[in-house]
């Protein structure tokens, strides 16, 4: 058995950053573009890093320059083989790029793909693997990566111990300002080296939901718990989310009752969300649920029990039954949007 621990000591690692751009069905993900901007900002502060990007799979690149901002080269590996993610194919591609460019840092937007791929790459590159938001020193240099641990009861800062690092940037670490326009050059990535046959993949496909708004990516999340009473009770939340262009989340109790799919669960055994506005309806606020909303901005709670722990982490609260409060709230929101 071989350990794939490749020591690449013959390569001199410079201040070169590589940003991984993820495409889904030919569209470059917004989160990847945000990651690119964060890295541009970082490079501007630390002075003189060279940034390039890697985009695997066929994708529409016509508006990339305008969307991305900043300076750099985008290597587009538009081979059909990269349309869908396979660990072996993507590992091969990223390794080739990292070595070819002599990069010392690789950045991803945090995603299901990145969480699957990055640990493999970290083993191959003997790299430090970090995730969360970049924490900066007083001098503006990267001092590590900060994220919530222990059910969001604490925040931990991790620092790399290896010369090469891989960072998964969470959605909370977006660039604070607009990136000045520069020159983005898109060039095709010619595959060299071995074929990208997987060692094991027999079949592979993805199916997108019609309502593709994901709680983990939404700017507004309205979530329901046991207090919604039934699957039907969530219709009020679907209506509110539709009005606001947000996504509907659920507590573990609501998911375990079969009212909502697991994909919408927020909390310790569900997702962590970081919306600007979080509205918790009929959710008591067990610590396991609160673990998932540690990065939410404004928190609003609606619950019949005024002593429910959810009010301890809320900015605004309404004590009342969701069946009565939500129809009034939906009407008020409709009025507000009409006036706008």
């Amino acid at each position: 058995m071989n350990f794939h621990s490749v020591e690449q000591e013959n390569i001199e690692y410079m201040n070169r950053f590589l940003v991984f751009l993820e495409q889904r069905q030919g569209v470059v993900k917004q989160a990847s573009i945000e990651a690119w901007k964060s890295v541009q900002e970082l490079a501007a502060r630390s002075g003189g890093a060279v940034i390039s990007a890697l985009l695997p799979g066929p994708a529409d690149t016509s508006r990339l320059e305008e969307l991305m901002g900043g300076d750099g080269v985008v290597c587009h590996a538009d081979d059909e083989a990269f349309r869908l993610y396979t660990p072996e194919g993507y590992v091969h591609l990223v390794m080739e790029r990292m070595a070819g460019e002599g990069c010392s840092a690789l950045f991803f937007a945090d995603s299901a793909l990145a969480r699957d791929l990055a640990p493999r790459l970290s083993v191959r590159l003997r790299a430090s693997l970090l995730s969360g938001r970049l924490s900066l020193s007083a001098a503006g240099e990267v001092a590590g990566c900060t994220r919530h641990v222990y059910a969001a009861s604490a925040e931990a800062t991790f620092v790399p111990a290896r010369p090469i690092s891989i960072t998964l940037l969470s959605s909370g670490s977006r660039a604070s300002s607009a990136i000045p326009g520069g020159t983005i050059t898109i060039k095709p990535h010619a595959l060299c080296g071995a074929s990208v046959d997987g060692f094991s993949q027999l079949a592979h496909r993805i199916v997108m939901r019609r309502d593709a708004r994901d709680v983990a990516e939404a700017g507004i999340v309205v979530a329901g718990g046991r207090g919604m009473g039934s699957e039907k009770g969530f219709a009020l939340l679907d209506e509110l989310a539709e009005l606001l262009g947000g996504a509907v989340g659920a507590s573990r109790a609501a998911v375990d009752a079969g009212w909502r799919p697991h994909a919408s669960q927020i909390g310790q055994t569900g997702k962590s969300v970081a919306p600007a506005l979080y509205i918790a309806c009929g959710i008591s606020g067990a610590i396991q649920h609160l673990a998932g909303i540690g990065s939410a901005g404004m928190v609003v709670a609606i619950n019949t029990d005024m002593h429910a722990p959810v009010f301890d982490v809320a900015d605004y609260g309404i004590v009342g039954d969701v069946g009565q409060v939500l129809p009034r709230l939906n009407d008020a929101v409709r009025e507000f949007l009409k006036k706008k």
Binding site: S122, T157, F158, R162, V299, F311, D312, R328, E335
Partner: peptide, 24 residues
């Protein structure tokens, strides 16, 4: 190790909740 835990601090999650009566 490849990564070192530099520090861990408890998070103060408590907020002062303003209670309202009206959705408007």
């Amino acid at each position: 190790p490849c990564v070192i835990l530099r520090g861990i601090v408890p998070l103060e999650r408590k907020k002062r909740c303003s209670f309202l009566t009206d959705a408007g």
